[in-house]
């Protein structure tokens, strides 16, 4: 088993990226964080690594509001791709939106593990990372 948790952070806002990274670091887990500035970048990377399960993330943090391909569009593409990945990856929608409509919609999507409202706090990150075997 690899000694660190691989995390994909799909998020366009650089400050948010900085803050989430900082929060994860504070959890004291060994992590490898890969940042994608929009959904399309992430999808393109997944296409590259299909078949290389060792490169799959352990956990995905997905923002909703992004240019080019937003979180919703990413989820659609990702769901279609998921059977080819052959692995269930924990995926958390992390957004500053508190719209009940967004929450409902996100929770109804099969591949979404949970909906997290920002700010993301360290103890939550600890909890999520601990849950991974």
């Amino acid at each position: 088993m690899k000694p660190f948790k691989r995390i994909f952070l799909i998020e366009d806002d650089s400050i948010s990226v900085f803050l989430v990274k900082k929060t994860i670091e504070a959890s004291n887990f060994l992590t490898d964080i890969k940042v994608f500035n929009d959904g399309l970048e992430a999808i393109e990377y997944f296409e590259e690594i299909v078949g290389h399960a060792d490169l799959f993330p352990d956990i995905i943090f997905l923002d909703l509001s992004m240019p080019v391909m937003d979180g919703w569009a990413f989820l659609e593409e990702y769901m279609q791709m998921q059977p080819r990945l052959g692995k269930d990856i924990a995926l958390y929608v992390t957004t500053s939106s508190i719209s009940p409509h967004d929450i409902e919609r996100a929770k109804s999507i099969r591949v979404v593990s949970d909906f997290l409202i920002k700010p993301l706090v360290t103890y939550k990150v600890v909890e999520l990372l601990s849950k991974l075997n």
Partner: peptide, 25 residues
């Protein structure tokens, strides 16, 4: 109104969250 709610709950809240987190750190 729905749009506006979404805007407030997302577009305005996003920078606020960032500010709060920065202040915290």
């Amino acid at each position: 109104l729905v749009d506006f709610c979404n805007i407030v709950s997302h577009n305005l809240r996003a920078p606020l969250v960032n500010m709060a987190m920065l202040a915290n750190f």
